[in-house]
């Protein structure tokens, strides 16, 4: 296991380097000049030159890229060009709200989707299965903005069940403000997840061991909930773990409409403002989370499937 982990971590270095290179090239070519963003509408050429010098934007590109690699190594990305806030503080302040929304919504979605997946695959081809699949397709087809507008207008404004938007750092405040966006999150993702888990479960039911179990006279619920579910854990775990980095990165649209000061909106603001230090920090964080997620998936495989060995 240790050797495997070391090998995977070493193997991820070129990935991080590659991501850094792509982000650097992309935002230096198409991102606009950050100095122009900082200097304001009454800019003078002298001020632009001063800012470029101060932030090292006048240095050759390879020097700037080298500095970026140094920032990755030290995890010190400095301050945002656009807001002048410390990036580490921005991320720390944003992670809490993002996770407060994402974790409960994700857990409920996963439990709900796996459970519904189980039920409908158990009743494969029957009315409940067909109706659920149809509902999932309809649910997936509705644009996310539709759910948000419905939630805010009908549930929050007309029915007064929830606050329309906002965020409060107290725990009671978080519950009060995050239930509606969490419901929207669940509605947005449960359809896709149900279809995914249903397919994974159905795939498993066509395996030889299921036929053998039936031939031996095991009851359907026993076959299904004891054997099929256990053996379907690999795709389920893969899907769940690979979604974890996305949770930390936040859901931009939900955060934006529901006024949640999370990581998603920080990233989008940074892209809009050509805020290179924040973009670089977020890209690094994303790649690290994905690498971590992938390694975790491999490790968890060994727990859910004894046939898998880490080499």
């Amino acid at each position: 296991m240790f050797v495997f982990l070391v090998r995977r971590i070493v193997g991820s270095i070129p990935v991080i380097f590659g991501v850094a290179l792509v982000v650097f090239v992309l935002f230096n070519i198409v991102g606009g000049d950050p100095a122009l963003q900082m200097v304001g509408k009454h800019a003078t050429a002298q001020q632009i030159a001063d800012i470029r010098r101060e932030y090292g934007l006048d240095q050759p590109l390879f020097v700037q890229f080298f500095n970026y690699l140094k920032e990755i190594l030290t995890f010190e990305f400095g301050r945002s060009y656009a807001t002048r806030q410390k990036i580490s503080d921005m991320i720390l302040n944003g992670i809490g709200p993002s996770l407060s929304l994402a974790v409960p919504a994700f857990l409920v979605t996963t439990v709900l989707a796996v459970s519904i997946g189980l039920v409908v695959s158990y009743f494969r081809g029957k009315l409940i299965d067909r109706a659920t699949v149809l509902l999932c397709v309809v649910g997936i087809s509705i644009p996310s903005l539709g759910y948000i507008l419905f939630g805010q207008y009908i549930l929050a404004y007309k029915m007064n069940l929830f606050p329309i938007s906002g965020f409060d750092y107290s725990w009671s405040g978080r519950i009060e403000y995050l239930v509606l966006p969490a419901i929207v999150w669940i509605l947005l993702s449960v359809g896709y997840d149900v279809r995914f888990y249903r397919t994974a479960l159905l795939e498993e039911t066509s395996q030889d061991y299921v036929r053998t179990a039936r031939a031996k006279g095991l009851s359907e619920p026993r076959i299904f909930f004891k054997h099929v579910l256990k053996n379907s854990m690999v795709p389920i775990v893969t899907n769940v773990i690979l979604e974890i980095p996305l949770l930390i990165l936040g859901a931009f649209l939900l955060e934006s409409f529901f006024g949640i000061p999370g990581i998603g909106s920080i990233t989008i603001d940074a892209i809009h403002n050509s805020d290179l230090p924040v973009i670089k920090a977020m890209a690094t964080m994303t790649s690290l989370l994905y690498i971590f997620g992938n390694i975790m998936t491999d490790v968890v495989y060994t727990l859910v499937d004894p046939r898998v060995k880490l080499k």
């Binding site: 198409v30 606009g32 000049d33 122009l36 403002n273």
Partner: peptide
């Protein structure tokens, strides 16, 4: 068509 930073860069 540009993003806002690119637009500004073009104009400036």
């Amino acid at each position: 068509t540009y993003s806002w930073p690119e637009f500004q860069q073009s104009v400036k």
